[in-house]
Design a protein around this nucleic acid. Sequence first.
DNA 1: GGGGGAAGGACCA
DNA 2: TTCCTGGTCCTTCCCCC
Length: 826
Amino acid sequence: SVLNHKQCESYCSDLLSRIALNDNKAGMEGLDRDKINKIILETSKGSKFYENELKKEQQVNQRIEKMMEQKARITKEQLKQAQAEVDKLTCELERSRELGRVIVHVDMDAFYAAVEMRDCPELKDKPMAVGSMSMLSTSNYHARRFGVRAAMPGFIAKKLCPNLVIVPTNFDKYRAVSAQVREIFSEYDPHFMPMSLDEAYLDITEHLEERKHWPETMRTYYICDAKTGNDADRSAAESERDELSPVLFEDSPSSSPSLSGADRKAEVFGTSAEEAVREMRFRIEQKTSLTASAGIAPNMMLAKVCSDKNKPNGEYRIPPERQVVMEFMKDLPVRKVSGVGKVTEKMLAALGIVNCDQLGQQIALLSLLFSGTSWHNFLHISLGLGSTCIERDSERKSMSTERTFVEMSDAEEQYSLCRDLCQDLAQDLQREGLKGKTVTLKLKNVKFEVKTRAFTLQYAVCTEEEIFAAAKDLLKVEIDSVSPQPLKLRLMGVRVSGFISAEDKKPLQRSIMGFLQKGGSDSGSFTQCAGSVLKAEEDSDGASFLKPQATEMKVPSVSDLSNTNSGTDTTSYVNKPAVLKPSFKISTQVLPFLTCPVCNTEMKDVNLTAFNNHIDECLKGSAVDNEPTHLDAPKEQEELNRKPPASSSESRTLKSSSHDPSCNEEKPSTSISVPLVETDEDGDFKTPFFSHRTKTNGKRSVLSKKKMPVCESSSKASPTTHNLEAITEMSSDSNGSSLTCPVCSQPQSTDDLALFNRHVDMCLNQDVLLEFRESHPPVGHSDEPALKSVRGQQGSSPLPPSKKPKVLSTKHTIDKFFKGNAGQKV
DNA sequence: GGGGGAAGGACCA
DNA sequence: TTCCTGGTCCTTCCCCC
């Protein structure tokens, strides 16, 4: 109501250019676009989706404006220079033009729809689509006449075509048909490149060479007879299909024109490329009752364009002659070329470029307006050049899973979904034997705004727990960023990328467990990264007991490690047993013997809780109890589950982790013993497994740098938790001017915290640590961050050598922790 | 200041 | 009532040399 006429017009024009009918698809020629667009517009208007599309469109318009301003500043001299460069490059490209390969792009016609029509013949004459009211995957040619096409929401399609039948997708079925088709592809090119279930590139150059010498019998195919041979069991409906593919209309071309005669029994195919491809399509139709279209050309770019030329059930060939290629490209709309989407199309249109001929004429200008990659691509397109080598077995770069749902605002539900996604993804990763270092969380809010948040771990992960540990922290930041408002989501996804190569999977360094088991052989047991942990499980049957503990040990995350149980825990999602499980689990493990890194006492048959307690005692400087106590698992579990009293020394918590809703700040609970916490270069705490940065509301923040609490509940932490704050409290004298070294119990001046830190470092460095460091130079991820957290990074940086700070800064150690947080006490 | 890596957004099929 | 998956490119930022 506030828009004037002109604004309204521009609004509609923006809308249309974005969500209007895209009739760049076979079977959609000559439609009444205005009428269809009006319906789409009316149905979409006012929706959140539409508003977002409009926003995106305005961004594109801004890009175009910027581009036009840039264009206006280009001088004749610049253009001349650019033209010279383009000419030079064109000459080089012409010289290297390769026309010797025969590349085929095969595309099944309306694939999903065709499969459904085949299996349900009554659909054949009706407009139908596959998908749901939310989104359609594809439509048949009847429906396309109404403007119904793939990637259109079902409810809009219904407006366009009220009689539309929407069939749900059945991917198992499509996969099975796809496998049949691929079998045929492999006979023409064993290394064909599938692009999706219904599409593939083939290089049939070698096949054609061989084919030349084939006798006619090898090129003869018999028509499937439903009443004879192997297909005797086929139903009447199936027999009927053979007469006409479900995607074909009565006047559609047949893949085998000569079959229409009286002699329909056999078909002999020639030796040319066209004949070979026609044979392939014939065989596909015989085997699946579905038709395919194909493009034959000297490169992939051209073949792809060609396959669309005579759809459905047709093929088109560009012979390997430069002149013919150039002629073909001349009138080709740029949008027909794979890789040119609606944004690029609009940007080029703003420069008066619609077809490939115009594109070729404007390359010099484009070279001044677009990136090198982009304009080189434009130049290739305008010359009709493309890849002549079908990339085989290219490595997967990422794996992800995402889900769209009705609005979800409840944090607990969101965490639960996040875990489900991680579980699915973990299964997929493990199925393919992949492990990746980067975990990305994708969120789409109810306004359709998409955000991705990622962090890269120090080692590759593949288990649900590991992925979730990272993903939930990313999610937490997003939830917190809008707090106290709820985060309203409509999509969530998790991705793992940065897959490691085979050699990276080798274990590099002993873990803290190996370190603590001084003298014992830890090779093949605990290893430094999750990937290696799994390897250890595979390699060492005898070490199977290590499996859950070793894996789960990696799980603690930022939130696990940065929250001290404040006593008000039950409602918080991070308090779910599933999240805390790792901390519990590890403490129940009983190991043959461990060596205390402080007093160097060897302890036999000790469980980790007892061992932890022992180190606590050592660090407090009190009497060392060399007799390990065994806590039985249920008792320990009970203790760990118990809420710590506000001020009590009775409860012994190995490490607690919770989120206190009353406190907005994070509180790290940094146990000195087993739970793994390390500092980053600045001495701030971070999760032991990764550091990451993320951007929230345009401002970068470092998730790992969770500042110490200015939170009332911090003082309520159980003293037996032994976080650094507690140690400070215990160690500092009454006037706060000195600290007692937790190792040697000697008072040290705090005038220079760096010196104090160095002193603690020296104490800890002695004996076991020194020996360990000498025998285990830091490589990649270290599993001893718990110790590092109190002694700084000196000599034990988890960073690879290249990233190690040259100067051992005083910043990144305990002093900063004291200054920044418990600093007031100091 | 440049190179390289990470993160995040956008585009495309 | 507007999908899912995966690849690529570009920009920005930061660290390191």
